[in-house]
Design a protein around this nucleic acid. Structure first.
Length: 628
RNA sequence: GCCUCGAUAGCUCAGCCCGGUAGAGCGGCUGCCUUGUAAGCAGCAGGCCGCGGGAUCAAGGCCCGCUCGAGGCUCCA
């Protein structure tokens, strides 16, 4: 049995023609049912009344969640290629109807055996669309030894031959089905069997960036909040802050005017409500006295409301508004929230450009495309790290095919294209750039879109040459994507480098410690501090390992912290002024240089990037540990 | 949201199958060592065994619910 279950605002259906001999009697008139959970059902070979009851029980569970109690049973053969005989199907459909009514559900039914016409309006919430499938086997669990010989199709037999049955061979020679074996105290065997059964790489492991973000004291989960709302330690806050500063600076350079808008909005504001009702389950909702508010899930509202009240003409356009949202909130489904990859509260740079017409929009689009690629490159993510998808309608392609071709040529790598026959989103053209992680999963970073709908929805207008009000096109661009996601991508990339035998590291400008000084003994601490002050005065983050452990251990710990430059300072260095610098980038090989050489080498590498001082005490002995 | 798995010291994990005194390594603290490029030695402290309920003379271990995490599915405007 297959069921497509849709939570509808309303459905209208009209029986047209009888399709089969045994069709039920029905009038050829329109039926309209409001607010019903519609069940499109196909009855398959072997389905029985027990299954019918099970399906209705599941539906009732859903009704409970939805706070609804009205269903429409709609026979719909097209869901299956293994249909039962119509007489059987009709019996089961009737059984379902009777059972549902019996259980107190307000039940309607479309006639069986008719060719029907229907119109349906589906609610947008996540539970609105469900598909389910039932088989008799999943219903009745029959013990193996009592299973009767039955006629089995060739296809099923073939499937049976190919299917693996897994067991564990115990020390006494007995076999235990893998499901029944308790692996406690045998974890290697467990890992091995999982590996064998799944026949894939060890994907059962956590995404690599999660243990890294904890071990490097960047960020961590916060059980005291909601999933996907995380805590940032000093080093992580530094990295995040530098990225925020960098992206904002680049957008400012491009001409984005930075604004700040509220985090929460009134559900009943007229401009917002029509847009919002499509996504009712995605927001954090909060009640405050007599108001219902939602936490913003993007910067769009705030900027649109500003644009709505602003006065501008074609002479000022494109008008570019920018905000770095800390935070945007999206109540992603619990199973989808992972590490720094997918959060419920995240930091999103978002720049809107209001353009007069499609020609101006196209011109701006290209400028921003270049900006995005360059911003990511400077963050440390190159074209080898991501893939681009571009999405548009056929109509847009017919009119602007050469433009799309130009974008592709600019990128110089094949692009995945998604083409629609009709536009059903608010944009006519969109691209997004996707990082591919170590589990071969994609996560979108930068994106830009040409929005052809929201100016009208929000009442945003500009004045044209003739003094008439016009609706602008709105470009939505995030040059870097979510800042947290950039850090996820950098950590995943570092892990990948490590797997390739290269030392994992962050870009120099983002490394919390850029230079670590290790005095060979306490005797040299004073001189080392003088050296540190000198380096620090050139906007380089330098610290001193004055802890009580051995030299070798201090080097090991600096390497595990991914410190790019490690310098041991003893009598030789103090006397000669020549430092032996251990360089992570080239696998920890050492190079002799003076302090000035070191300073200019580092300064050159971080030129053009923002600087913030060390987020922790310079002396390592003074630092708390944030993660074991 | 669904299915599966997990949660024991600050961290990583053993103990659970078969109920009967809470374990290791790392980290921390104290002391020794004062060091030349990836783990020096010794001692000490550290536990509501995620939370709540149940069965049991007795639960870290069994049963049920919840929270949080992970993998898969679904989703990703």
């Amino acid at each position: 049995m297959r069921i497509l279950q849709l939570h509808s605002d309303f459905i209208v259906f009209k029986p047209l023609e009888k399709e089969i001999e045994i069709a039920e009697e029905a009038k050829k008139e329109e039926n309209r049912i409001e607010e019903a959970l519609v069940l499109f059902i196909a009855i398959e070979e072997g389905d029985n009344s027990a299954l019918a009851e099970k399906a209705i029980d599941d539906t009732r569970a859903f009704l409970g969640k939805l706070g609804a109690n009205r269903i429409l049973i709609y026979p719909f053969a097209h869901l299956s290629s293994n249909l039962s005989k119509p007489t059987e199907a009709l019996k089961i459909i009737c059984a379902m109807e009777a059972y549902a009514k019996n259980k107190g559900v307000e039940t309607y039914r479309a006639p069986f055996g008719w060719n029907k016409q229907f119109t349906i309006s589906i609610k947008g919430h996540p539970l609105a669309e469900q598909s389910r499938s039932y088989t008799p086997e999943s219903q009745n669990v029959v013990p193996c030894e009592s299973k009767q010989e039955e006629t089995v199709s060739e296809a099923l037999k073939a499937e049976d031959t190919m299917k693996s049955y897994w067991h564990v061979l115990q020390t006494d020679g007995s076999l235990v089905p893998i499901e029944e074996f308790k692996f406690k105290g045998n974890s290697n065997l467990q890992k091995f069997s999982q590996y064998e059964i799944k026949k894939t790489r060890a994907v059962t492991q956590m995404p690599p960036h999660v243990p890294l973000m904890k071990r490097l004291e960047i960020a961590d989960y916060e059980a005291g909040s909601d999933p996907g709302n995380i805590r940032w330690y000093p080093k992580g806050r530094l990295i995040k802050s530098l990225l925020e500063q960098y992206v904002s600076a680049r957008v400012a350079e491009y001409g984005g005017m930075e604004v700040e808008t509220p985090l929460m909005y009134d559900f009943n504001h007229p401009s917002l409500s029509s847009y919002l009702n499509r996504f009712p389950a995605r927001q954090y909702v909060l009640k405050s006295e007599d108001k219902e508010l939602f936490l913003r899930f993007a910067a769009c509202f705030g900027q649109f409301l500003i644009a709505h009240d602003a006065q501008f003409s074609y002479k000022q356009m494109p008008v570019k508004l920018y905000e770095l949202t800390r935070y945007s909130f999206r109540r992603e489904k619990s199973g989808e929230v992972v590490g720094l990859k997918r959060l419920r509260a995240f930091t999103m740079p978002d720049c809107h450009a209001l353009c007069t017409d499609i020609e101006q929009a196209k011109k701006e689009f290209i400028i921003r495309f270049d900006l995005c690629i360059d911003v990511l490159d400077n963050i440390g993510l190159t074209k080898d790290d991501y893939e681009i998808a571009i999405r548009f309608t056929r109509e847009f392609y017919n009119e602007h095919g050469d433009f799309i071709a130009a974008v592709a040529a600019k990128f110089g790598k094949p692009i995945l294209a998604e083409v629609w026959n009709e536009r059903f989103f608010y944009f006519a053209l969109k691209w997004d750039l996707n990082f591919i992680d170590n589990q071969d999963k994609a996560a979108a970073l930068s994106t830009d879109q040409i929005d052809v709908e929201n100016a009208k929805r929000y009442g945003i207008t500009y004045v044209d040459e003739k003094g008439e009000k016009q609706f602008p096109l709105i470009l939505h661009c995030s040059p870097s994507g979510a800042i947290e996601r950039d850090i996820y991508a950098l950590l995943e990339k570092a892990y990948r480098e490590q797997m390739k035998g290269k030392p994992p590291m962050l870009p120099l400008w983002l490394s919390p410690t850029q230079v670590r000084l290790i005095p060979i003994s306490d005797k040299f601490l004073d001189q080392v501090e003088v050296l540190a002050k000198q380096v620090e005065s050139h906007c380089i983050r330098v610290d001193i390992d004055d802890s009580a452990s051995t030299l070798q251990k201090k080097i090991r710990e600096a390497e595990q912290e991914w410190v790019p430059y490690i310098i041991v300072v003893g009598e030789k260095e103090i006397n000669s002024g020549l430092l032996s610098v251990r360089i992570r980038e080239v696998k920890g090989s050492q190079q002799q240089m003076t302090v000035d050489n070191l300073i200019s080498k580092v300064t050159e590498k971080i030129a053009g990037k923002p600087y913030k001082p060390l987020p922790l005490p310079m002396y390592i002995s003074k630092r708390p540990q944030f993660h074991g």
